[in-house]
């Protein structure tokens, strides 16, 4: 057998575009995280009204202001994405800082709510099933917000140091995907805990 010439012609192919791995990775992570949240949400819904004693969801106040803050942070981070894509680093920094501020307000609001529940209503994670499921679900979301805030603050730090440039737009967008996800989850958590659950 004679050896065959082993190269195949390389076609001029300008159309060979593949999705960005950062985006694919983040989307995968979001799918996985959604499954975690789904389980916690299902547990919450299943246990609504099953506590044998102690406080009930009636003691919750609907955190309208918090919710507005968090959801509008999705808008501001989107504006920040746009800014960095166009190369307006100042606008980017401003929108980004605003996003962070809104996130911090949300976390502060949650902290305030928990303080009230623990100190005044006597609801802790050990009190009853409502306490267990409430703190777990809301706490899980809050953890995600905190992680997001840490990453946002890193970006802000480097932006202020002048290290972030227009060419980092894609990484910024991947990060903001995560933030959008955290906001979207809040819509679900809010609906389940404060509307359906009450």
């Amino acid at each position: 057998m004679s050896a065959i010439q082993n190269s195949i012609p390389i076609f001029a192919d300008e159309n060979w575009r593949l999705p960005s791995r950062g985006r694919v990775g983040m989307f995968s992570l979001i799918i996985g995280e959604s499954a975690i949240f789904t389980i916690f949400v299902v547990a919450y819904i299943y246990y609504i009204g099953r506590s044998v004693s102690g406080p009930t969801p009636q003691i919750l106040d609907i955190p309208i202001f918090n919710t507005v803050c968090l959801l509008s942070s999705s808008l501001t981070i989107w504006l920040a994405e746009h800014a960095i894509e166009r190369g307006c680093m100042h606008a980017f920094a401003a929108w980004w800082a605003l996003t962070m501020a809104l996130g911090i307000v949300f976390i502060a609001g949650t902290a305030q709510e928990w303080t009230r529940l623990i100190l005044h209503e006597g609801l802790t994670i050990r009190t009853n099933l409502f306490g267990t499921t409430f703190y777990s679900l809301v706490g899980l979301h809050a953890t995600h917000v905190v992680v997001g805030l840490i990453m946002l603050s890193l970006v802000l730090l480097f932006t202020l140091l002048g290290r972030v440039e227009q060419r980092h737009a894609e990484r910024i967008q991947v990060l903001s995907l995560y933030w959008h996800f955290v906001d979207a989850v809040w819509v679900v958590v809010f609906t389940v805990v404060y509307i359906v659950g009450r």
Partner: peptide, 10 residues
Amino acid sequence: AGPSRDKDKP
């Protein structure tokens, strides 16, 4: 059917 004809869905 060169690869140039095949589009991939991103």
